[in-house]
Design a protein around this nucleic acid. Structure first.
Lengths: 265, 265
DNA sequence: AACCGCCGTTGCGAATAACGAAATCAACAC
DNA sequence: GTGTTGATTTCGTTATTCGCAACGGCGGTT
């Protein structure tokens, strides 16, 4: 295990837990020696990525993390660009809408607007969504590089509910359907009683870089809701893609949305 | 130099530059061997903190960075809490308002609302502000631990303009004045022609964790503006502090703002 | 006031991860 | 085809990191 991987797993652990952590607790969770843990923490503190409470000696994520994220957002304004669309969709549908971005580690949920209804779906920001078990994941896979699809098809299929996809054929069927319709669906694949619809956000080369999804309690689904929500996320997702890539290089051809046609699948 | 420090300096470099960077360029900038740089990058990619463009082979900050920042924000909602106050102040004053948070590496600018006027001060988000040369830095120092003040008083005083503070006595005088008034001022200390007013945002123990500032072109300053802006940032900053720490432990005593009285200086 | 527990600190032999020169490979221009 | 630039791989050496164990210190407890 490389040193940076160790350092990052410390950061992950600090991010995962709600409360601040002491040295021993932290070392125990990540499975490193106390000395090693502390040496890494000191390095991270010097870089500003971790802070230590002077009084309780507990560790937490530092402002350097936020700084790096802000610098990234300045270069690639995914959140700033997508947020208005997410809010609007939440307003229009009255349901929970969430936005996710793909990274090598998985599909991370980056923005969520929860429904105002009492019975609603809640998605924590920063959560990593399994590709095979969520509508967002299926939408992403439908417009991903073949390499990634194959990797997921091979891999294990951790079951989150009794309805989670568990075979490559089943997965591939969902993916094909999503590609044909432009949006994906998932019924209780990740959480009991939750129904989701998602559409991919496409990058310049037609490869999905994220997903936009609507999640509702299954009991609330009425006839026509699926198609209506599907059309909404598809429109929202391509709107986000156009804003993202239309503005940066040349905003002239934004309306033509030529990306989708060029998708290498 | 520790391995994690190297990895972080890679992240910093990727964040600093506008355009994406190739391996050779990146290795040159950080001063590591090409092989070393690449090995670190691969580790970072596996952790999701860096992404590589498939086509151009260029590297950029990854979604994992944003994810960690979102997890941090969930634990300690500094931005979410402070943003409304910043926006309101910008509205009320018509000038550029910016918010910064302290970390071991310095005072980082985390949110900025620029004035709508043509002649205005611009502050890039993610920038690190020098403690001795900015109003925000002085405000922070006035309510910082003695250790930090001493460290800054000793250290070098990089000059950004002809007016930058350059002696410990001068600095200490500014700090004393800021502590007495509750807000600090800086005249062209960091940038020619810019005048700033700032107030500290205090943590539970009365130690400053950040600052709120108004920055205006010096030529626009009229009689009474300084006092007016000073009162505004002081009120805004303590409002932010109360919201941040009033909500978490017990919101009952928020109005009493007992933190300021307990300041250990 | 004495105790206990936990955190931080130090030293050192062993392990291993990082290092960097050089060779290979890929893409592109001419 | 050939030359150039830059990314990637290989491998022996080196230096860093690892982790055990023991010590010192602060805070909270009894």
């Amino acid at each position: 295990m490389s040193t940076v991987a160790k350092a990052v797993s410390l950061l992950e652990t600090l991010g995962a837990d709600i409360s601040e952590l002491g040295l021993a607790e932290l070392a125990g969770r990540v499975g490193f020696d106390k000395t090693t843990t502390r040496r890494l923490l000191i390095s991270l503190i010097e870089c500003g990525l971790v802070e230590q409470d002077e009084r309780s000696r507990c560790y937490r994520l530092g402002a350097g993390i936020s700084r790096l994220a802000l610098l990234r957002e300045a270069q690639f304004p995914f959140l700033r660009t997508a947020t208005p669309t997410v809010e609007r969709l939440a307003q229009e549908t009255g349901e929970t809408v969430h936005l996710s971005e793909y990274s090598s580690r998985g599909l991370v949920s980056v923005h969520v607007v929860e429904s105002t209804k009492a019975n609603r779906v809640s998605v924590p920001v920063g959560m990593i969504l399994p590709l095979h078990a969520t509508a967002s994941g299926i939408a992403l896979l439908a417009f991903a590089r073949k390499k990634l699809r194959d990797a997921v098809a091979e891999g294990p299929f951790p079951a989150f509910t009794r309805h989670t996809v568990s075979a490559p054929e089943e997965l591939s069927k969902l993916i094909e359907a999503a590609r044909a319709r432009g949006y994906s669906t998932s019924t209780q694949g990740f959480e009991e009683g939750v129904f989701s619809v998602a559409a991919p956000i496409l990058g310049v080369d037609g490869i999905a870089i994220g997903a936009l999804a609507i999640a509702t309690p299954q009991v609330r689904i009425r006839k026509g809701d699926i198609e209506r929500h599907g059309a909404a996320v598809a429109a929202g997702a391509s709107e986000i893609g156009e804003h993202l890539f239309g503005l940066l290089p040349s905003s002239a051809h934004a309306a033509a949305q030529p990306q989708r046609a060029r998708a290498r699948i």
